[in-house]
């Protein structure tokens, strides 16, 4: 009976990164990348927050809040 509410509370407390839920720990995009050992200077990487691209120049300022959905992508071989 409380499962739905618990799941909601959990989602509210955490964030989603590339489709996977995780606890909210990093307060900015840059901090999130650092926590995941992703080199912020690496070429070919981009970040979207809640469906909007965050320019690289804004990574250190852009706040991440509980409930946010983050996409971290990179250029891969493709046709």
């Amino acid at each position: 009976m409380n499962n739905g509410r618990d799941a909601r509370m959990e989602a509210l407390a955490g964030i989603t990164v590339n489709g996977l839920a995780e606890p909210f720990e990093a307060a900015t995009v840059a901090a999130l990348l650092a926590a995941k050992d992703i080199d912020s200077d690496a070429r070919g990487i981009a970040v979207a927050l809640n469906g909007r691209v965050v320019p690289r120049t804004a990574w250190s300022q852009q706040a991440v809040a509980p409930g946010d959905a983050v996409e971290i992508v990179r250029a891969r071989p493709g046709g």
Binding site: N18, R43, G44, E71, V73, R74, A75, R76
Partner: peptide, 19 residues
């Protein structure tokens, strides 16, 4: 050359196509 845009692997290092 063409490239795809995909979610980064959070498991570890991937080769950088750009490099």
């Amino acid at each position: 050359v063409t490239a795809a845009i995909r979610r980064i692997s959070l498991a570890g290092e991937e080769e950088s196509l750009v490099d």
